[in-house]
Design a protein around this nucleic acid. Structure first.
Length: 287
DNA sequence: CACTGAGCCTGCTAGC
DNA sequence: TGCTAGCAGGCTCAGT
């Protein structure tokens, strides 16, 4: 499923391809794919618009228009944005059933949105709405302002289980289940660990792990486990770097050999090593 | 404030 | 071998 590295890869491939192109039309094949506003208002805001660039905020792709507004695309689980230079060439017919939306450009190229599970969302946001959206998202973990000190402040200001906290896009924008499990494993932190009780060494290790895991995955164009593809349809190469995600409970830990365990935390499957990722022992007073 | 559960979807897999 | 129940999961909303 696309998280920050996958979305960033799509952004990087699409930016030079879409920049300067003018939208000629929009077709919506599944009504719920369009999140906002109405289809009529969306077409009015978008058709005739020129793309000034493609940016990213967290897991959100922003196709910026010269008017200052932007088309936002969230891939969620199985969404794919695919650019095709020539709309007249033959499409992959087996995938047409999952084609949820199409943008055509005035030069005959097109941008297709495929999404098997229909969770993905496309919207148009005015400049004002973009400001509101920005305010709802947390720090960008690959930007320079994401320091260990900032992470410590974010974690210690809350008393929450670390895993749901790291998945909270209002706190840190872009992490999903794969990279959170990987980061917690590398920093040897139990997914149920209370954020407010983490020590400086663990927080520093977690910060290093998050930055390393994400930047490696970006360099390798993301992790393709099944559906994820870049804006040109290419799979990523980061899957070989995953150390724990995707392993089944009972599998020996790659570090210590203990059987891995699985818990459902905040409705997400979570794989971890109960030996490497210890919960602190809380001793309770005798009655 | 922190957490839980439902709902949105459909392909895949585990288990019979 | 063939079938089905349940899992997978990002995000929002309602409720405790």
């Amino acid at each position: 499923m696309p998280e920050l590295p996958e979305v960033e890869t799509v952004r990087r491939t699409l930016d030079p391809l879409l920049r300067g192109r003018t939208i000629a039309g929009f077709t919506l094949n599944w009504h719920r794919t369009l999140e906002h506003p109405t289809l009529e208002a969306f077409e009015y805001s978008v058709v005739g618009g020129q793309v000034s660039g493609v940016s990213r905020r967290g897991k959100l792709i922003l196709i910026r228009l010269s008017t200052g507004g932007a088309i936002t695309v969230h891939l969620r689980m199985t969404g794919e944005l695919l650019f095709r230079p020539d709309a007249r060439t033959i499409r992959n017919s087996t995938r047409e059933a999952y084609l949820r939306a199409e943008f055509s450009f005035t030069d005959g190229s097109e941008l297709l949105f495929y999404d098997t599970r229909k969770f993905g969302k496309i919207a148009y946001r005015s400049p004002d709405e973009l400001l509101g959206l920005e305010a709802r998202l947390g720090v960008e973990p690959l930007e320079p302002d994401f320091t260990a000190d900032i992470l410590a402040a974010l974690l210690l200001a809350r008393r929450r289980q670390i895993k749901p906290l790291l998945l909270d896009q209002a706190v840190i924008a872009g992490l999903g289940n794969i990279y959170v499990d990987e980061s917690l494993f590398r920093s040897r932190i139990h997914p149920l660990q209370l954020s407010s009780e983490l020590g400086a060494i663990s927080i520093d290790a977690l910060h290093t792990a998050i930055v390393d895991v994400l930047s490696t995955a970006v360099a390798l164009h993301g992790t393709t486990l099944r559906d994820y593809r870049s804006g040109l349809g290419e799979p990523g190469e980061n899957q070989s770097r995953l150390r724990i995600y995707g392993l089944k409970p009972g599998t020996p830990c790659p570090d210590c050999g203990s059987p891995l365990e699985r818990l459902v935390i905040g409705q997400r499957g979570s794989i971890f090593c109960p030996n490497c990722q210890l919960l602190p022992v809380i001793d309770t007073p005798r009655q």
